[in-house]
Design a protein around this nucleic acid. Structure first.
Lengths: 192, 192
DNA sequence: TGCCTAGTATGACGGCTGTCATAGTAGCGT
DNA sequence: ACGCTACTATGACAGCCGTCATACTAGGCA
């Protein structure tokens, strides 16, 4: 397996995730994905014999892993981390992304859930798994900050709910104010 | 305009909204919509010359109006309303809907944003407008409960963000726990 | 009676979708 | 040199999509 071919596979997964963020599952065409990835069309049936479902599933897996890595990244950079500061850092990532790309892209997990939760259980499970991958390091960090495990779980769930909803509303309004608002409003509750 | 034909138009709009909730914009086929609405296909180009965009826009408008009516309904039934109690009532609507329909349907506004925010500005504006229609009575109610206008606006935004995100996550996990959680966790903050 | 409008019916159109069958190439191990 | 594997290439397939053109029916109104 040469380096370039492995590159093809990874680039297809990455590009799929980006397409999901822009147009959802139904709006993501596989021909367009491989074209944007600079990969040959034949790679699709070679690397993803499970078809679109497999590809979308891997894209969600990649997104979850990436999001978890961002959480770790923020934690590593903080001198005195608190739940609210962690949340603010995650939110700031999204503010920057939305503003720099003109609200083009949302969360791929939300896109998959909205399009497939009722019609495609494999994709729904992949979305749930990605969410879990994302939430786990947040919960763990809150525990190290002194919260009881149950409490940490509740607070990280609250963070993700507020964040996902704020992303949707921010894109609808083309305004990042909702994101900043949830970060600010939840801060005292998170650090209490 | 006879009663039955007006019924056709309204039923098409309603059925479109329900399809949006299940499969998003891309997954909603117009032939299927009119079939489920019990309406003739010809009604589509007669009532909605603007095509799918117009239809989706009207479906979002209907959804926003319906949601606002639910808010008023809850307020009318409460003896001593508080922000947290209003939020709990709205959340309970969604818990009941998700549980009774096996997590089939989410929020049509979120579906439209996720699928079209980048590719279809008319639909995006309709979604923003529906959100506004929904939020307005909430904000107004918070003002009558004694919050300053700015504060009421912030709190109602927080409510909708947490709610929309919790719906997405609940559908991913097929579990209404996130909805109940945001209702419980935000209560002290809302009623503070 | 006769027009005019509202609503319905139906078929066709081009385009895009995911999937599959088939054939081809490159390169490495033996 | 041979064969095997990894990967690429390409065309065809059926199916659904939104849209449009065209023609039909019924009912009110003059």
């Amino acid at each position: 397996m040469s380096a370039s071919t492995r590159g093809h596979r990874e680039r297809i997964v990455y590009e799929t995730a980006q397409h999901l963020r822009r147009a959802g599952v139904g709006g993501t065409g596989l021909r367009q994905v491989v074209a944007d990835a600079g990969a040959p069309r034949g790679s699709l049936q070679h690397y993803f014999p499970g078809g679109k479902d497999q590809l979308v599933g891997e894209a969600l897996g990649w997104a979850g892993t990436w999001a978890a890595a961002r959480v770790e990244h923020h934690l590593a950079r903080m001198r005195r981390p608190t739940p609210a500061r962690l949340f603010a850092a995650i939110v700031e990532d999204w503010v920057a992304d939305l503003e720099s790309r003109d609200f083009e892209r949302g969360c791929p997990v939300a896109a998959a859930v909205v399009d497939c939760a009722d019609t495609n259980d494999a994709v729904r499970q992949a979305a749930a798994s990605a969410l879990h991958t994302w939430q786990r390091p947040i919960t763990a960090a809150l525990v190290t900050m002194g919260r009881a495990p149950r409490r940490a779980q509740a607070l990280s769930t609250l963070m993700l709910c507020a964040l996902e909803g704020a992303i949707v509303i921010a894109r609808a309004q083309r305004d990042t104010a909702p994101l900043r608002l949830v970060s600010r409003e939840l801060a005292p509750l998170l650090d209490a």
